[in-house]
């Protein structure tokens, strides 16, 4: 295998992984706060549409990414309102959100299937990208790729290095106790849900702004669901999202390359691997933590919180 093919595989994996990374890191924060939002696919597709629409009208990548975030947040706010204020079941509401998001994006985007835009392209970092080997491997990516890694770091920093992060985790583990000592459970959760929406929005927009300059209904093609699996795979640890995304995205890319190189692979069985690996990880995680009090799964995940006071 030659060097440029290797680099290309890395770039390919990065492009396949980043949408998952964005969506998953957002959902990770949401789940850490004790909320399970199954509507990731719906939020992603709305982000993909809005990013594309704004790009095609303004040709401004910054506005396009902001619009994608706003779109994801807007639709996430429906989920936040229903689950946090009207106390609806999160699983059912998340599923409804996916339906609604897919329908809304398909309908609103009907006028844009004929259009094409200027892609947001990779920006090699001056000087650094000229370093042999390391340059193309580390410093020649799309700006949004770096942003994805930064967001993972940011979420880790927030969760484990700030007071608010500690509170958010406490809420996710025991909302009644957190409430009892005076924390505003609902406010934290609403913020987390909106952040999750924004991240899913960028994740979706990565598809329509970086990967392909087109808009098509259903173009997220199930990536939101994969992102949900990824959060579990990462066992709610931010940095593991990176490895998980690379694994999930990497399997797709490696399988494609293997086919091109005439290596016989069974697409279906290979594609099952990440999910089976996720289950194995869940089990091994439990076996390791059996005797410790520190449990990584947010205990209140999916449970409804309502304060009477």
């Amino acid at each position: 295998m030659n060097e440029s093919l290797f680099i290309n595989i890395i770039i390919g994996i990065s492009i396949a992984s980043v949408p998952l990374m964005f969506a998953a890191i957002g959902e990770l924060l949401v789940e850490r706060s004790g909320v399970l939002n199954l509507g990731v696919e719906g939020m992603m597709i709305v982000g993909a549409l809005l990013g594309f629409v704004v790009m095609s009208h303004t040709q401004n990548p910054y506005l396009a990414v902001l619009a994608a975030m706003a779109g994801g947040m807007a639709i996430a706010s429906i989920f936040a309102f229903l689950t946090q204020f009207l106390l609806t079941n999160q699983v059912a509401t998340g599923l409804a959100l996916t339906l609604f998001g897919l329908g809304f994006a398909a309908f609103a985007g009907r006028g844009y299937t004929e259009e094409t835009i200027q892609l947001i392209t990779a920006v090699p970092i001056p000087y650094l990208s000229d370093i042999p080997y390391l340059g193309p491997l580390l410093f020649s990516f799309n700006p949004l790729v770096y942003l994805a890694f930064f967001m993972v770091y940011l979420v880790w920093w927030f969760l484990f290095r700030t007071k608010q992060g500690l509170i958010l985790r406490a809420i996710g583990d025991n909302h009644d106790a957190a409430h009892a000592i005076g924390h505003n459970v609902v406010r934290y959760r609403v913020m987390a849900i909106l952040f999750g929406g924004a991240m899913a929005g960028i994740g979706g927009a990565f598809l329509s702004l970086v990967q392909v300059p087109i808009w098509g209904e259903g173009m997220t093609a199930g990536r939101g669901w994969i992102a949900l699996g990824l959060v579990v795979f990462a066992s709610w640890q931010p940095f593991r999202i990176i490895f998980g995304a690379i694994l999930f995205g990497g399997i797709t890319i490696l399988q494609i390359h293997a086919q091109g190189l005439n290596i016989n692979v069974s697409a279906q069985y290979l594609s099952m691997l990440p999910y089976l690996a996720t289950i194995v990880i869940l089990v091994s995680l439990r076996m390791r933590l059996k005797n410790k009090t520190n449990r990584t799964v947010p205990n209140c995940l999916g449970r409804i919180f309502h304060s009477t006071t």
């Binding site: 409804a96 959100l97 339906l99 998001g101 897919l102 329908g103 809304f104 209904e217």
Partner: peptide, 8 residues
């Protein structure tokens, strides 16, 4: 998509 929106 109208049906999906409506169901949602």
């Amino acid at each position: 998509s109208i049906t999906q929106i409506f169901q949602g």
